[in-house]
Every structure is written in structure tokens, then in C-alpha cells.
Design a protein around this nucleic acid. Structure first.
Lengths: 219, 219
DNA sequence: CATTTTTTTTAGATTTACCTAAATTTAAAT
DNA sequence: ATTTAAATTTAGGTAAATCTAAAAAAAATG
């Protein structure tokens, strides 16, 4: 089956919201899509008749198996394009989201297959998020945010969950990117801020808000 | 100003039809876009209020200077993407048109600028058609079709005007591509067919219809 | 637990890009 | 120069995706 750009955006947003809460509300989706709740209700009826969501009036909704697979296809396209934009065209990683948002809707199977090969079958996008495979299988790596990491452990940054230009500009300032090695010196219980030591950099303090968005794994 | 995908498609099609006839008719545009004449009239009123076309009721229309510049921007994007698809992703040149048709509407200046640099500033697309520069300047190369070439002159294929899969499949069979050297052995006046000799191939006869679509320049 | 607040849905409009069918204008043909 | 044919436009309508305002349902609160 074929989907409109609008339908694909709804499916993708439901998918992303489900990473936080198993069932998604009308308001939260309207907020995510910068649209109005009434519009969400309209579209959800449509997605329901197309058998992509489980939806009960006033009770929220979630993608069913079919919807999930379609969402993963969109996510795959988005992340492959982001990889292309950063690693081939030389974009900064805080500038690619909006462009990938357009490219992801280009609907050729063959294109994505060849793009994947051209990029050498990357496993993660420039923010460290895993790229689903052709069958919609996604390798979720268990990861902890810097807010939850014990002091003195050497860790490697594996992904950054907030991809806003503001956040990514700040990371650049701290010399933090995917693959950066660092350790936590201290957790300040007063405000949750964290002192970290990035290799070859002076120690610095980051706010709790920042720490919660930086995910790491042990090396 | 910003244009919808539909508006862009109309602008691009008017541009292409103007290569043949200075002024374009409602029917020919409807035919090109596989839509109905009434829809063309609707859209043309819109393009007129947006000051992109000169349009007089019942008299046909053409792009004005602004419209032309926008058309050349779209053509530029289309041809850069075609170059990318063939020379980077390894598509056959008869498979790229439909995909480039989608990619051309992705609306980031920065994307096209960086894509152009990544491709090393190509001058022509895979069919030999020139790629307009950033300012909408296009270098039109004076070229003759095989139907108009004198016998025994060595020529090089510079472009192919019909990009249908059927045509391009046939060219592959004759071992003809952009840059191929060949000469005309004979013009048959009976049906306009042409015997040609492609280097390292046996002589063969192509129909007038094919000959008229293959453009060459002297080497 | 009744009531206020919040969330969600319905009802009815709007915009864009189409369409069909009928009317109008232009072009062609006898 | 009429008449016929073809091309174009108008009129009115549809589907997709929005919206606002009002109604209905669920959740929160005193």
C-alpha cells in the first residue's frame, strides 16, 4: 500500500512517541506534529480504517504490527539520508534533520537499497541512533544517560537524543560527539548537574538536562 | 517565494514545452502533466497572480523572466539528482527519471549546493543535457541529430532527447551512450533510416525516429 | 461524589488540486 | 460566410488535510 506524506508523518510521530509511552494521546501527537487535536482525530480514523493503528475513542492509540513495520521503514529512510548528508555531503549533524524529513518520503525501494550500499550499510545515523534493516529489524542498544553513570567509569558516547540545533551547538562547544570517550567526575545532587572529563579537555560541568540527553556505553 | 510540488511541476512542464514552441497551449500542458485542461486553466490563473507566466485567455501562455528562473532551478535540481543516481548510486540511466522527479522538489538551497560540490560540479546530466548553474544560466550546446549529419564525418554523441526506458534500452543494445564515437555511413531516403558505424561495432541501421533523438557534435 | 478542568471528538468551513459537464471562444472546413 | 469541429474556460463538485468552535467524555479536585 502507498501512503501520503501526511500519513507517513503521523505514523512516524506515533512511532517516536511510543518509545516513551506505550500508548499515545491525541494532544501529545498534535503537539509533536504542530497541528491541532481535531486534525489528529481525523487522521487517526483514517489510519484505523487502513488498519495501521489500534485506536479506541478517548482512550489513545498505538501502532499495530503493520503500522510499526511501516514506521520502521520511514525511520530507516530518514536515518540513511542523515548519514548521507553528514558523511558524504559534509553537513554538520545539527543541520540535517529538516532535510532528511523531506527526503524520507521519496518512495523508491530501489533508491534506498542502492543508497544503503553506497553508504556501506551503516548501522547508526550521525546522532548514534540505530538504522532499522530492510525487514524493519532494529538493534536497540541498552544505553544509560550520563545522569545515571557511576563516577570514574570510562564510557563512550553512543547517541544523543535531543537533536535540536541548540543542543548540538552546545555539544560541539564541549567537544562531545558520537564515539567521544569521557568519564564522570562528580554528580551534584543539588541540581543534578554533572562534572565530566572529556579526553584531552579540561573538566567541565553540564546541566542535568544535558546529561539526560547524552547516552553512553562502557568501552 | 515558496512553491508547492504541483506548482513546480506545472512550471517545469511549461519550461520543457517552451523548448519546442515559444507559447504553450492548455491542451499540450494537460497532456504533458497527464491531467485535464480544466485543471490547467485553474493552475494557470494561480501562476498568473503569482506573476510567473504571461497568460491571455484562449491565447496560450509562457513563463516570464521570473518563471523561467524558477524553472531553471528545478531543472538544475533534477539533473544534479540524476547525475547522483547514475554516477554515485549506480542506477542505469533509463531508471532515474521518476526518482529525480521526486527528489527535485526537496527544497534546501544548502542541499543542492553541497550536492553539486560532492558531484564535482558536473556540466551535464546522464542523458547529456546541460545542468543550469546557480544563477539559472544554462549553456546550450548547438547540436545536430543523426538525421541531419553528413556521411563519413566522425561525431560524438552529446545527448539523447527521448529518455523513455524503451528508447534507452534500445541504445544500450546498439552500444550507444553519451560520448560514444560513431559516423554515418548512409541515409536512406525511402524511410529516413540511417546506417551508422559505432567504433568497435558492426555497422547497423537505425530508424529515422531513433536518429532524430540522438544528438551529436563533431569531435 | 459532585463539580470543575482537561482532553477528545464532532460539526461545519476552508484551501489546494483535482475532476466532469456545459458554455464559450477560436479555428477549420465546406 | 456559415457551419462544424476543436480548444479553452466556467460552473459546480469531490477528496485530502487542515482549521475553529461547540459538544461530549474522562480525569482531577475539593
Amino acid at each position: 500500500m502507498n501512503f501520503s506524506v501526511s500519513e507517513e508523518n503521523y505514523i512516524k510521530s506515533i512511532y517516536h512517541l511510543q518509545q516513551q509511552t506505550a500508548t499515545v494521546t491525541t494532544n501529545s501527537l498534535a503537539n509533536e506534529l504542530r497541528t491541532k487535536p481535531a486534525s489528529v482525530t481525523d487522521m487517526l480514523k483514517k489510519l484505523q480504517t487502513k488498519q495501521l493503528v489500534e485506536y479506541e475513542k478517548y482512550r489513545g492509540f498505538k501502532l499495530n504490527a503493520t503500522g510499526n513495520k511501516i514506521a520502521l521503514g520511514i525511520v530507516r529512510r530518514h536515518r540513511l539520508w542523515e548519514f548521507f548528508l553528514v558523511n558524504k555531503l559534509g553537513f554538520e549533524w545539527d543541520k540535517v534533520h529538516a532535510i532528511a524529513e523531506e527526503l524520507e518520503h521519496v518512495s523508491s525501494m530501489e533508491l534506498i537499497k542502492k543508497l544503503d550500499a553506497f553508504l556501506n550499510f551503516p548501522q547508526t545515523d550521525p546522532h548514534g541512533d540505530p538504522i532499522p534493516d530492510t525487514n524493519g529489524k532494529i538493534t536497540v542498544i541498552k544505553q544509560l544517560s550520563l545522569a545515571d553513570i557511576a563516577v570514574k567509569k570510562n564510557v563512550v558516547v553512543s547517541s544523543v537524543s535531543n537533536q535540536s540545533p541548540e543542543m548540538l551547538e552546545m555539544l560541539k562547544h564541549y567537544h562531545i560527539g558520537i564515539g567521544t570517550s569521557l568519564k564522570v567526575n562528580k554528580h551534584f545532587t543539588f541540581d543534578g548537574s554533572v562534572e565530566i572529563k572529556v579526553v584531552q579537555q579540561n573538566p567541565c560541568v553540564i546541566s542535568e538536562q544535558v546529561a539526560k540527553n547524552i547516552f553512553v556505553h562502557h568501552d
